[in-house]
Design a protein around this nucleic acid. Structure first.
Lengths: 333, 333
DNA sequence: CTGAAAGCGCTTACAG
DNA sequence: CTGAAAGCGCTTACAG
């Protein structure tokens, strides 16, 4: 079945195609009677304008591009959830682009730009400074509105929606210190992410302020490997607190600790910095800093629509969403 | 910076735009020398053809549409991972569309079709039979190649990549029976998914074959609610085996059971039907049927490319990928 | 309020 | 092998 075009509608309604176009785009500019007539025909024929033709003619695709590292990462999927809900509301389509840190960023960005998206939501937090600069510069050159979503970039002029991971981690570290913990470790990842760097900074601040030495332990994202690494903590290392950038790291640590007859939270307090749904499946339940990733996605998409419609023109810098602590049984806090 | 067009390239290379177009689409049809010249100019100018214009002129967008229920569901994110890797390889762009079971499917499908995607990967397994029919019929009418990815539809003519969840569940139930378990429950979801129905069917078969009464317990997807429901199992119900359609259900059951001093696996054997990465974070580690969701995504995308290029023309029906059992500590199997 | 016409940036027969 | 021209299905000034 060949799809019906604007010509078919114009023919059936006995008007010009310009009029049909107007009832779809500027209905107020057309006589109510003809408008109704056209609307009726549109409905009868089930007509939907070809989005590609419309995109070419109007130079607006009502499509946004989402640039990320890996869809299957839990945080990315959550962000997408929030983005999608808002995008749907404002009738934007979504195109996704994964860019790996080991590919040619210039080329990858050209691909995105060639797709003529109206705006970009940038979620990739696995690029280094130089790569980020290339990406941001190419978006700027193409004059495409962009919002960073749960990623940080040094140029604070670029709009960004996230959480103040630094202060969140600072505060939770402080709290542990107040409750008497001294040998607190931060468990982070081997790969560097812009967000985890912030968490590390907050932790380091709090420890230094207390006159203690910050101890960052970097582990793999792989749970099986983590488990092996963790064993070393139960011989020589003095340790009474753990803050993990990922819940899965915290949970696998708790498991290994308990296998070594270490009591959680009495001997070691453990905190996760995500609050994924697995936090309450862990035994003991994992105390967390709750980071509202869905909301970050939703808010950043909402902000992007404003830039695309030029309702918001001045760069307002970083939007930092509130976070909160969820006390469960893995801490004595 | 206004983007460079094919006219700019043609001008700089002193050829017609038709020639530029040819070096991009049918390089073999143009003289090697002019080809090199044009290629050089393209590189210098960083030219990339406008994908929208190209799409309109060629009637091919090299974009596929992915229809799903909710991106943030773990299985969906995994599928997307596999899809994206293959799509990238074949240079297809990806547009995502979420369709909820409570919206107007006809309209939703029109939106997808209006976007002129070259092919559709259908992942939504939350629609009922009638809705599925509407969706499939509209795709057929629009003559867009489609592959079902981890979803089942009664018309087996529609290409589909998945796992034989029915036989997988049948076999694991059998295995439990062989090892002496008798009061085996299947824990499923309140909402109906095409995949979970298959799991239920396999379980029912195996139980009936053994002359036992199948007992399906439907619980919410919410872990907190599950926990409350599970309590009833430790008073009256006789139960010595649990097969859960989701790992999270299995894990929260194990937690509640252990809180009631029930021994896993001695008193109750527990199996999860996903093998998410949380299976090994659970205590005891969760025995699973491993369902290679990433692979389903990758294979379905690969198959779709074949249909789009018409390499594969005849409908080959369902492609069922292999699955396997992963024995861990939550079973005595 | 409505229609004729140009144009969006490409591709693709058609000539030559 | 190359170019001129038509056309993809729309939108949008421009007249009227």
């Amino acid at each position: 079945m060949a799809s019906t075009t604007i010509y078919d509608v114009a023919g059936a309604a006995k008007v010009s195609l310009a009029t049909v176009s107007r009832v779809m785009n500027n209905p107020e500019k057309v006589n109510p009677e003809t408008r109704e007539k056209v609307l009726r025909v549109i409905k009868e024929l089930g007509y939907r304008p070809n989005a590609i033709a419309r995109g070419l003619a109007s130079r607006k695709t009502t499509t946004i591009g989402i640039i990320m590292a890996d869809v299957s990462r839990s945080a990315t999927a959550q962000l997408l959830g929030g983005i999608q809900d808002i995008a749907k509301k404002y009738e934007y389509s979504i195109k996704i682009f994964s860019i790996s840190h080991d590919e040619d960023i210039t080329e990858a960005m050209r691909t995105v730009i060639a797709e003529q998206v109206d705006g970009i939501l940038f979620l990739n937090d696995e690029l280094d400074k130089n790569q980020m600069k290339i990406a941001m510069d190419s978006i700027k050159d193409a004059m495409i509105p962009v919002v960073l979503s749960n990623v940080f970039y040094e140029d604070e002029e670029v709009p960004c929606v996230a959480i103040n991971y630094e202060s969140a981690t600072y505060e939770i570290t402080k709290k542990m210190l107040e409750f008497g913990r001294k040998d607190i470790y931060l468990f982070s990842t081997v790969r560097r992410y812009s967000i985890n760097s912030q968490k590390e900074a907050g932790y380091i601040d709090a420890m230094k302020e207390a006159g203690l030495e910050p101890k960052i332990f970097r582990t793999s994202g792989d749970v099986a490997i983590n488990s092996l690494h963790f064993k070393e903590f139960f011989g020589n290392n003095k340790i009474d607190g753990v803050i993990a950038v990922r819940d899965s790291i915290a949970i696998s640590f708790m498991n290994v600790a308990q296998d070594h007859n270490v009591k959680i939270p009495e001997d070691i307090s453990v905190v996760g910095l995500q609050n994924t749904k697995y936090a309450i499946l862990a035994r003991p339940n994992l105390t967390c800093v709750d980071t509202p990733v869905y909301d970050i996605g939703a808010v950043s998409m909402r902000l992007l629509t404003k830039y695309m419609k030029q309702e918001e023109t001045e760069k307002q810098g970083r939007v930092l969403l509130p976070y909160r602590f969820i006390r469960r049984n893995s801490t004595t806090i």
